[in-house]
Deep mutational scan, measured.
Amino acid sequence: MSDQEAKPSTEDLGDKKEGEYIKLKVIGQDSSEIHFKVKMTTHLKKLKESYCQRQGVPMNSLRFLFEGQRIADNHTPKELGMEEEDVIEVYQEQTGGHSTV
């Protein structure tokens, strides 16, 4: 019986991991920090939209990076291997420009 009891508790931990929340720091170019608590399985588009709304800027005017890689709207913290207190960097999107060649 103890084996049966242990097995469901392991499964519960697996389920808990799926719905687990982590805190992420979003740091802007001006070094301002906003902290977000997100589920591991939530699409990061929600975090990006919330950040842009707080900053009063359109979402397409900023780019969000985690460990140097651009974050897509459909990425989740779990897919990117994010952990508690990880940092997302935000930069002004640069458009235009010309070749110097």
Rank of each mutant, 00 (worst) to 15 (best):
T95R: 14
T76G: 04
S61I: 04
R70P: 12
G81D: 06
S9I: 08
H43K: 15
E33F: 01
D12Y: 10
S9M: 08
S2W: 12
F66N: 05
D15S: 09
Y21F: 14
F36V: 04
S50K: 05
Y21N: 09
S50R: 15
K17G: 08
E85M: 15
R70M: 10
Q29W: 14
T42M: 07
S61K: 02
I27T: 07
F66P: 02
K78H: 08
E85N: 15
S50L: 15
E20I: 12
L24N: 03
E49L: 07
V57D: 03
Y51I: 05
K7W: 07
T42R: 05
R70N: 13
Y21I: 10
H98R: 10
E85Q: 11
G81A: 14
L80M: 08
T100W: 07
M59V: 14
G14E: 12
Q55V: 15
Q53G: 05
S9R: 11
T76N: 01
Y51T: 04
F64M: 01
K23N: 09
M1H: 07
Y51R: 04
T100E: 07
L47S: 03
G97D: 03
P58A: 09
S9E: 13
G56C: 06
G19A: 11
E18P: 11
K46L: 09
Y91N: 05
G81V: 05
D86P: 04
L80W: 02
F64H: 07
Q69P: 07
K48H: 00
P58N: 01
S50D: 07
K25C: 03
G68S: 06
T10S: 11
Q69M: 01
H35F: 12
I27P: 02
E83W: 07
P58I: 02
N74V: 12
Q92Y: 11
L44W: 02
V101M: 09
K48Y: 01
P8E: 00
R54E: 05
T76W: 04
F64A: 04
K45R: 13
E33Y: 10
R63W: 13
E5W: 10
I22Q: 03
T95Q: 00
P77H: 03
Y51P: 03
S32R: 12
L62F: 10
G19M: 15
E5K: 15
R70T: 12
L47F: 03
Q94S: 13
K45H: 10
L44N: 01
L13H: 06
T76P: 03
G56A: 07
L24M: 06
K25H: 15
D30H: 07
R70I: 11
H35K: 11
D15F: 11
E67Y: 06
E5Q: 14
T42E: 04
K39N: 08
A6H: 11
Y21S: 12
P8V: 04
V57E: 03
Q55I: 15
T76D: 01
R54C: 09
T42I: 04
M59L: 07
L65S: 01
L65M: 14
V101L: 10
E11F: 06
Q92F: 03
S9V: 11
S99A: 12
V90S: 08
V87C: 09
V38L: 12
G56N: 09
I27C: 07
P8C: 14
E79T: 03
L13A: 14
E83S: 14
K7V: 05
V38Y: 08
D73N: 04
N74C: 14
T95P: 04
Q92W: 11
H43N: 09
L44P: 03
K39F: 00
H98A: 09
V90H: 04
M82L: 05
G97M: 00
H75S: 13
L24G: 02
L80A: 00
H35S: 08
G68Y: 01
Q55D: 09
T41R: 04
V26M: 03
E85F: 15
L65D: 01
Y21T: 14
K48N: 03
I88H: 04
E93I: 03
Q94P: 08
K39A: 02
E11W: 04
E67C: 11
G68R: 04
Q55L: 11
E79R: 05
K16W: 06
D15R: 12
E67G: 10
G19P: 10
G97A: 04
A6I: 12
K16P: 12
D30G: 13
P77R: 05
T95L: 14
L65A: 03
M1Y: 07
D15P: 12
Y91G: 05
G97V: 04
N74L: 13
Q94M: 11
M82S: 03
K39Q: 09
Q69D: 12
M59A: 09
H98S: 10
L62V: 15
V90W: 01
Q92D: 07
E67R: 03
E89W: 15
M40F: 05
T42L: 09
Q94E: 06
E79C: 04
G56T: 04
T42Y: 00
N60S: 11
G81C: 13
